[in-house]
């Protein structure tokens, strides 16, 4: 017995160490590639600062859309009682399995000049490719499902009795959502949002194909890394570190003790 338990414990420790070593070694190597004191200079290049602005602007807009539309939609999908709910949930996961370049082609075949809605959009005077709106669409399309999926799980895990109790006390559906469901699901929602944000800020393939790489308009940080690779490896690495810092910062914020959740309970990203 004790031997078997010992073997199992060794296995656990070995796999944990292997996991950390494998996932963190490339990140450590990236950080060691460029001397830290050279970073500010490399990041001050105008190509980098303009790409940073494009990335921040488009991702903020995309994340607002994802949260504002995704949260109520996930609430309905999680708690609504209607036919075909499992099928709908599966359909929502389809964009997750698309390789980014295919996602870009899919967006073009829908919203591109010759796409499904191309002539309708053109008639309305809207041309999406090569615009920041296209970057926002690409990021929303690729990152959104991560949030919605997590939000559905978070809402589905709620204790329906608590929601019903609030209703019995006369709370409207809107109040139940806002005052009970949102705070209780907050940890799960933040965890899902952090993942979606990290996916969106690093988006490359769909953006390149759908939005193009126009300097100061659609050239995001990941596109800038790729374009910088052969000009200057150091500056490409510096942009990579910047992306890492932004994503790491967001993950940290998502892990901070919840300020507006009454439970303080934890989820994968909610903290240990």
């Amino acid at each position: 017995m004790t031997h078997r338990a010992g073997i199992f414990r060794v296995l656990l420790v070995v796999t944990a160490i292997a996991t950390f070593a494998f996932l963190l070694a490339p990140i450590a190597a990236l950080l060691l590639q460029v001397p830290m004191r050279d970073l500010p200079g490399l990041l001050r290049e105008t190509a980098v600062t303009s790409a940073l602005l494009v990335s921040l602007k488009t991702n903020v807009i995309a994340n607002v859309i994802i949260l504002a539309v995704g949260t109520p939609a996930a609430y309905l999908l999680a708690l609504g009682r209607f036919r075909g709910r499992p099928a709908l949930l599966t359909l929502l996961e389809l964009p997750l399995v698309l390789p980014p370049a295919v996602a870009g082609i899919a967006l073009l075949t829908a919203f591109g000049a010759f796409g499904l809605f191309g002539s309708a959009l053109t008639n309305a005077g809207i041309f999406l490719p090569f615009t920041q709106a296209a970057v926002v669409i690409a990021v929303t399309f690729v990152a959104g499902p991560y949030y919605v999926r997590a939000a559905v799980s978070a809402f589905a895990a709620l204790d329906r009795n608590q929601l019903d109790a609030a209703r019995d006390l006369g709370a409207s559906e809107g109040t139940v959502f806002r005052r009970i469901a949102l705070p209780l699901a907050a940890d799960g929602l933040r965890a899902g949002w952090a993942l979606a944000f990290a996916r969106g800020i690093g988006e490359f393939g769909a953006t390149l194909l759908f939005a193009g790489s126009v300097a100061r308009v659609t050239e995001t940080l990941p596109l800038a890394v790729y374009a910088q690779l052969d000009v200057n490896l150091d500056s490409a690495v510096a942009v990579g570190i910047l992306l890492l810092a932004i994503s790491g910062g967001v993950l940290l914020v998502a892990k901070l003790p919840p300020l507006w959740s009454p439970t303080g309970s934890s989820t994968p990203v909610g903290g240990w």
Binding site: I105, L108, T109, G112, A113, F114, G118, P129, F130, L208, L209, F210, G212, S213, V214, A215, V217, T218, Y226, A227
Partner: peptide
Amino acid sequence: NTVSQYQKATDVVSTVALGSA
């Protein structure tokens, strides 16, 4: 002009073929 730049020749081809440029 409004110029989108690609690292791969084939990406330039698809961008024009699909009407983005």
